[in-house]
Design a protein around this nucleic acid. Structure first.
Lengths: 201, 201, 201, 201
DNA sequence: AATGAATGAGCGTTCATTCAT
DNA sequence: GATGAATGAACGCTCATTCAT
């Protein structure tokens, strides 16, 4: 009876396309101009449709933002998981994860910007912290493994994992914002720096 | 336009105090709940004064935000400059800068959050990029010096400097957000990690 | 910015009616109480609609004022042009223009008041001056023609045209403000006065 | 006991000067930028004094505006009265009044602008109408006299008086706004036009 | 599925005025 | 006489959301 879109709504092919259109347009504008600065009106105007369209597919603007961020976090996560599986030794796994992450960042700059924005938003704090902790604990696990296999000296694993993530993400930001830098080259530099850093006691 | 002069205004002691009160209250709320989410009304309500008071001291909300951020950037910068001067060898200077920065971050968590927010704001992009580049070029200079003095092997100095800053700032964020971690301990870990990282070719 | 497009918007019949309603209501209030004194809130309150309605149809209050004035100037201009064409000799044309203008003033007292207000507004100064100069140059042209056809003695045509407009507009104001005076009677007196005035050397 | 300035307040010499300063500064700004657009703050800022100063000399902004306009109206009135007395025949008196008015307009452009503004202000409507009627009845009286002395043919005296005033004031406006036109020359043209106009039946 | 119209709380800002000192 | 500080109602405007068609 209600028009409020339920969790699952059966959409026609055309409906799916519309929905995707909205997501893409919104993602771009959110990243370029900010979430607050992008009104629902702007989005539907740009798509040349009425305002009702938006609320047919999404119950609210917030829901859309959340969906974009959640699915991007999920995608990044999947990418990292797959990468981790392509090596067998701990430091190799870390390297692969960094390499894959850097590529993902370079391929999804809009989502990275949204992550940065969400980081400083009360409403997303929990979700973002959780995501960061998942990433950190992944790295941390392999740091511990590397220690126990004698690849690196012992040391506080959580701090080391954070350092690895911080260094590589900062470099990723440079890659995204200063177009013209080669992502792979930076990825290798990041990996060298981090692996060497992990050699510290 | 008429009640808040752009340049200078003579303030009495009481006026100075009121102004400071506004800055403090706003800084806290901006950091805790976000800049957009903190209306001028909320600030003056919290202080128990009329709305006009705000505009007696600041020509606009934007001006206040800019002032808070600029002065914090300046303060951090000064802190780093002083720290750099307390050591004589390049890696020692880098260590001191990291140590001082970490302490500043721990002491000014609200400003750090504002920096993160400003990073993702179109209107502040230039200012923040400039500030980051100043910090990076400082580190970069000492990385170059360390290379030429044979302390570390050669390598892309800008990338290395960014990695150092990324690792230490990410750790600082952990310190700020998870109260209970000892800043100095993290600072030392960060320094060890970064100096070791710089040993990579 | 987002709900009121600068160029065109497709309006339904209801929309057109609403828009007209706003224009009419605003014109009356602007004329009766002044533009500054008539807030957008008062207009929408009088119409019994929400505030957003105004901004659905007009991008700003200023835009509305400008539109009202511009279209009234255009309408008056058209009226005068048509009137000029109904006579063949210069003085006859001037008479027809004055007659038609007086009728227009009597029929559109609110717009006349807005013209007077706009005359003393910095922001409208150019537009109003331009409009006055168009009206003046129209009269001026026929004054010159009357001179060259020997209907009236030579003399400064711009000054004479201004005098004609001044006399007739002042009389129009009396007609508008003191209800009960017959516009046509005044028009004829104005014409007699002006034509005689033009006989001066 | 009260600080509200009474009708008469004893002012020191310095006080009188301050008061005059405020009047002059306000008059200029009111004329140049409009009354609404000139805040009390602007005025006191320009004079480099505190806000209290204004309210020491005037109970309100409105009072100041009213005073400026009333005293200017009175001054103009006096000027016209004196001018009327310098001739003996009716048309001569009208000519002298027009000549003197034009000179006054040229010498007091700011006040003329204020008159125009006040004309379209609800709050001043009565005062301005009264002033206009005084001026009109003055001219009207001499028109009647001119008729009864056979200088001009009979005709509606109020309408004729309004026409005379309209023509001359419109020309005065041109003199004020387009600097470079010689007031006396325009005055003579206005007088010729009006006297000829009065010859109409 | 989609439209144009409407809502209304809330925002940043202004400014005539008052007040304590 | 004069100051800087404070008030608070009102303004123009925005925008997420809802509704009738």
């Amino acid at each position: 009876m209600s028009d409020a879109p339920p969790t699952e709504r059966h959409l026609t092919t055309r409906g799916e396309e519309r929905r995707e259109q909205i997501v893409r347009c919104a993602t771009r504008r959110f990243a370029e101009h900010g979430v607050h600065e992008t009104s629902v009106s702007r989005i539907v105007d740009e798509l040349g449709v009425g305002k009702g369209v938006f609320y047919w597919y999404f119950p609210s603007k917030d829901t859309l933002v959340t969906e974009i961020i959640s699915s991007a976090l999920g995608d990044l996560r999947t990418t990292q998981r797959h990468a981790l599986a392509t090596a067998t030794d701990p430091l190799g796994r870390i390297s692969e994860a960094l390499r894959a992450s850097m590529r993902w960042y370079a391929a999804n700059p809009d989502h990275v910007r949204l992550f940065e924005w969400a980081d400083s938003q009360e409403g997303f704090a929990d979700q973002m912290r959780a995501a960061r902790e998942v990433a950190r604990s992944d790295i941390e696990r392999h740091v511990r493994a590397a220690v126990s296999q004698g690849q690196i000296p012992p040391g506080h694993p959580a701090i080391r994992a954070e350092a690895v993530l911080g260094a590589s993400q900062r470099l990723a930001r440079g890659v995204i914002r200063n177009r013209g830098i080669e992502p792979d080259e930076v990825a290798e530099a990041a990996i060298r720096f981090c692996l060497a850093g992990l050699q510290a006691g």
